[in-house]
């Protein structure tokens, strides 16, 4: 029993790290560009399929891990620049455009890669089980777990120490004042959008061996990311991290004990948070 719980715990945490990648991107994009990117899951899916396609031709998982997020991030930059820039300040319309974009991307992926469910095997070096005494656990989810935590620490460091990080935080807090100090909010927005979508793409590459690819996954992942961000707090990465862990655990253990109600519990949690503390559990009051 204990081993079962431990297994589920690790599974949940690994899933949580995937959610974190997505939620982080979404949260950054919202904080800086003030856009709720409902196409986020589609970028995840794009990353996953691209990873699949390139993995076959490039052969190295690590190369794919590096390249795919860059490509997806580039697409994100183009989207911000050409589709969203002109709608500055009009929130509903921006969201609608991202919805439309999400549908377009998802359908294009379906046309290209087909509707069949594709399960992606983990790369050879990370496949197979790990033996910890009598406890056996597959290596790959552990890798995802470790990667997620490292990324959290890395991004935190980046935001806290680098000039760009400080600029991101300043533009999130007060874009007008930031611009009087010589910062170009538009440029920071653009770059952040790129980084956010790149993170989604990274999530896709990393997540593919864990979650089978199928049409409709984009919508599911967008929804999950949204829920995490709402629960954890918009615009704060600690919120994305701990929110992801909370949702991952509720989902994982929910599936184990109350399989029919797992989804429900998560939605109920989100609704509760929105009702009681709309800025999220760790969020700050938005202006």
């Amino acid at each position: 029993m204990l081993l079962l719980l431990l297994t589920q715990l690790l599974n949940s945490l690994a899933f949580a790290m995937l959610l974190f990648l997505l939620a982080l991107g979404l949260s950054l994009i919202f904080g800086v560009a003030r856009v709720v990117n409902l196409a986020h899951g589609a970028f995840y899916l794009l990353g996953a399929y691209l990873g699949l396609a390139l993995g076959a031709s490039l052969g190295s998982f690590w190369l794919v891990l590096l390249l795919v997020p860059l490509l997806v991030g580039l697409l994100g930059v183009l989207v911000e620049r050409f589709l969203l820039r002109g709608l500055h300040g009009r929130e509903l319309e921006q969201v609608l455009v991202t919805i439309g974009l999400g549908f377009i991307l998802a359908d294009l992926l379906r046309a290209f890669f087909g509707a069949a469910i594709r399960s992606v095997p983990p790369p050879a070096e990370l496949a197979g089980p790990l033996f910890l005494g009598s406890f056996i656990y597959p290596k790959y989810p552990l890798f995802v777990l470790v990667m997620g935590v490292l990324l959290f620490l890395l991004v935190r460091l980046l935001l806290a120490r680098t000039p760009f990080g400080v600029q991101v935080r300043a533009v999130t807090a007060d874009p007008g004042m930031a611009s009087t100090l010589g910062i170009q909010p538009a440029r920071v927005s653009l770059l952040t959008f790129g980084i956010g979508t790149a993170l989604a793409g990274l999530g896709g590459v990393v997540g593919a061996p864990m979650i089978a690819l199928a049409p409709g996954l984009d919508a599911q992942m967008t929804l999950f990311a949204l829920i995490v961000v709402v629960i954890g707090g918009l615009g704060r990465i600690e919120g994305a991290f701990w929110g992801a862990i909370l949702v991952g655990l509720v989902d994982g253990f929910g599936r184990l004990f109350l399989p029919q109600l797992a989804m429900f519990l998560i939605f109920a949690l989100m609704a509760l948070v929105l009702a009681l503390k709309p800025e999220g559990l760790l969020g700050r009051r938005l202006a």
Binding site: P163, A170, A173, D174, G182
Partner: peptide, 29 residues
């Protein structure tokens, strides 16, 4: 930001400190 680049600076009404930054970060930025 272009006017700032030319040499215009503003000490705004209400101070407008950035939420989440500390003094050192404000100055370094």
């Amino acid at each position: 930001h272009r006017r700032a680049a030319l040499g215009l600076a503003l000490v705004p009404q209400g101070r407008r400190m950035f939420d989440g930054l500390n003094v050192e970060e404000e100055l370094q930025m």
